[in-house]
C-alpha cells in the first residue's frame, strides 16, 4: 500500500548530490555560531533556518533567503555538526534549485574589463569556485571574436582572489573592494600627518 507521493521540495534537495541527510538536522544551532557570515556580514544569515525551510517545503522563502546565496562552502560547520550533515552541500543544492528557478545572487561579484583582458587564464586557475571560464565573444573596439574571461555570477562568491592575481587589473570586485578604492583609502591615510603618540 505504498503511496506514490509527489516530490516535495525536500526530495528535490535530497536528489542533488550533497543535499542528502537534510532531515537529520535537529536545529542545535552549532553551524550558525560556527559560521562567520552572521558575525561579520549579514545578520539575517542562518543555515539552520534555511535547512528548516527546506524540510518544511517553504520553497519561495528558501530561494529568497540570503543564506541561500552567501554560503561560501568553507565547511567549518561540517566538522562541527553533531549530526554530520554536509551543510554547505545542502545549501548549494538549494542554491542550484534557486538558479534553476531563475533566482540570481545579490552579491557584488567579480567583473571583467573586457577591453584589457588578455585571456592569460590566471584567474581561471586561482578561482576556488571554478566560476571563471575563458569565452570567445565580440568585444566592442577589439573585434568580433576575442577570448576573454567570463564570470558566472551565480558561482562567484566575491572573494577577490582573481583580482589579486590579475596581472593587468582586468578583473576585479566592484565598489569598496576595487583596486582603486582600496589604494585610495590607503593613500588618504598616508597623506594625513602621523599623530604623535606620547609614551
Amino acid at each position: 500500500m505504498s503511496h506514490e507521493s509527489s516530490e516535495t521540495f525536500a526530495d528535490q534537495v535530497r536528489a542533488i548530490p550533497g543535499g542528502e541527510h537534510l532531515e537529520m538536522c535537529y536545529s542545535c544551532g552549532t553551524c550558525v555560531s560556527k559560521c562567520m557570515i552572521q558575525h561579520k556580514f549579514e545578520p539575517e544569515y542562518n543555515p539552520r533556518r534555511l535547512i528548516r525551510k527546506a524540510m518544511m517545503g517553504m520553497k519561495q522563502e528558501a530561494f529568497g533567503d540570503k543564506t541561500t546565496w552567501l554560503c561560501s562552502a568553507c565547511d567549518l560547520c561540517y566538522s562541527a555538526c553533531p549530526q554530520e550533515i554536509h551543510i554547505s552541500g545542502v545549501l548549494l543544492a538549494i542554491r542550484e534549485l534557486a538558479i534553476q528557478a531563475g533566482y540570481t545572487t545579490f552579491l557584488k561579484t567579480a567583473v571583467v574589463d573586457e577591453l584589457t583582458c588578455v585571456a592569460c587564464g590566471l584567474c581561471v586557475e586561482v578561482c576556488p569556485y571554478e566560476a571563471i571560464t575563458l569565452v570567445e565573444k565580440p568585444v566592442m573596439f577589439r573585434g568580433k571574436a576575442v577570448t576573454v574571461a567570463h564570470v558566472d555570477p551565480n558561482r562567484c562568491m566575491a572573494c577577490g582572489l582573481c583580482a589579486a592575481s590579475c596581472r593587468s587589473a582586468s578583473i576585479g570586485l566592484p565598489d569598496e573592494f576595487s583596486n582603486e578604492a582600496v589604494i585610495e583609502n590607503l593613500w588618504e591615510w598616508m597623506r594625513s600627518p602621523v599623530v604623535e603618540v606620547t609614551e
Binding site: A158, C159, L161, A163, A169, F177, I183, N185, L186
Partner: peptide
C-alpha cells in the same frame, strides 16, 4: 584595511 579575504590582497596594495 578590511578585505573580503587575504586572497584579495594584491601585491599592489
Amino acid at each position: 584595511i578590511k578585505v573580503p579575504c587575504t586572497g584579495r590582497i594584491s601585491p599592489l596594495f
